[in-house]
C-alpha cells in the first residue's frame, strides 16, 4: 500500500469510528466500558451527543464563516494601495491577538454580550479572524510583484488583478488560514459551555465537575474526531488551488 492509500484508509476508519461513536449508543457504550470498566455512569443523559455536536458545529460554522468573510475583506483591503497604511497595524494586531488566551477573550466578551451562544460565537469570531487575516495578507504579499506588474501591464483593472491574479495565486495560503481558523475554533468552542453556550464542552465540564473521566473523554474524543475530519476535508480543498511549489501535471 502506498502511504497515500494508508492515509485514506486511516481517514475512512476514523470517520466511521466518529459516526458510530456519536450516533450508535451501544457502540459508544462498548468503547467507554472498555476504557473505564470501573465507571458506572458512562453515558451523559441530559442532552444527547448528536445534539451537542450540532450545537458545537453551529457555533463553529457561524463564527468561522463570519471570520472568513471579514478576515478576507480586511486582508484584501490592507493590501490595496488605498489601505496600505493600515497593513502594519493589521499585521501587528493579529499577531498580538493570537497570543491572547481564549478564556480571556470569552471573559471579556460575556459582560458585554451576556451568557450563552452569542458571546461564544463573538469570541470564536475574533479568534477565527486572525489566521484568516494573517494568511490573506501573507498570501497576497507572496505573489511575485513582477507577475502583478505583468498583469497590470496587460491591461487588467485593479479589480481584475485581484480576482484573476492575486487571489488565485494566494488561494491555497488563504484556505490554509481558514483551515487553521476552523480547527482552532472547534477546540476553543468547548470553553463556550462554561458560559452556557452548549456544545461538546457541556459533557466535558459535566465530567470535570462529577469527576467522571468517561464524560470528559466523550467530549474530547468527539471534538478531536471532528477536528480531524474537518482538517482532512480542508486538506483536499487546498489541493484544488494553485501551489507554487508543485509541478502541475496535465
Amino acid at each position: 500500500m502506498t502511504s497515500r492509500a494508508i492515509r485514506t484508509t486511516f481517514q475512512i476508519v476514523l470517520l466511521l469510528f466518529l459516526l458510530l461513536f456519536v450516533y450508535m449508543l451501544d457502540f459508544r457504550l462498548g468503547v467507554l466500558r472498555l476504557l473505564f470498566p470501573a465507571q458506572r455512569e458512562l453515558i451523559y443523559q441530559r442532552v444527547t451527543l448528536p445534539t451537542l455536536v450540532i450545537q458545537h458545529m453551529r457555533m463553529v460554522a457561524i463564527s468561522s464563516a463570519g471570520a472568513t468573510v471579514v478576515g478576507l475583506f480586511i486582508g484584501v483591503a490592507v493590501t490595496r494601495p488605498a489601505g496600505r497604511d493600515f497593513l502594519p497595524l493589521a499585521r501587528d494586531l493579529s499577531s498580538f491577538a493570537q497570543t491572547f488566551p481564549p478564556a480571556a477573550v470569552l471573559a471579556l466578551a460575556f459582560p458585554v454580550l451576556g451568557f450563552g451562544f452569542q458571546p461564544t460565537v463573538a469570541a470564536l469570531f475574533v479568534f477565527g479572524l486572525l489566521p484568516v487575516i494573517n494568511n490573506t495578507i501573507s498570501g497576497i504579499e507572496s505573489v511575485d510583484s513582477r507577475i502583478v506588474e505583468a498583469s497590470v501591464g496587460q491591461g487588467m483593472t485593479q479589480r481584475q488583478v485581484l480576482f484573476r491574479t492575486e487571489l488565485p495565486l494566494s488561494a491555497r495560503v488563504i484556505v490554509a488560514g481558514i483551515r487553521t481558523s476552523v480547527i482552532i475554533n472547534i477546540g476553543t468552542a468547548t470553553i463556550g459551555s462554561t458560559i452556557g453556550a452548549g456544545g461538546l464542552g457541556t459533557v466535558i465540564i459535566a465530567g470535570l465537575v462529577r469527576n467522571n473521566t468517561a464524560f470528559v473523554l466523550t467530549g474530547a474524543i468527539t471534538a478531536a474526531g471532528i477536528a480531524f475530519v474537518v482538517d482532512w476535508v480542508f486538506g483536499r480543498i487546498e489541493t484544488l488551488f494553485y501551489d507554487p511549489r508543485e509541478r502541475v501535471t496535465t
Partner: peptide, 19 residues
C-alpha cells in the same frame, strides 16, 4: 487599461501567469 490592452508587453519569463 485601454492604452495597455492596445500595447503588447513582453517581459522575462516570470511574466506568464503561473496558474
Amino acid at each position: 487599461q485601454i492604452l495597455r490592452r492596445g500595447i503588447g508587453y513582453v517581459i522575462q519569463s516570470v511574466g506568464l501567469l503561473p496558474h
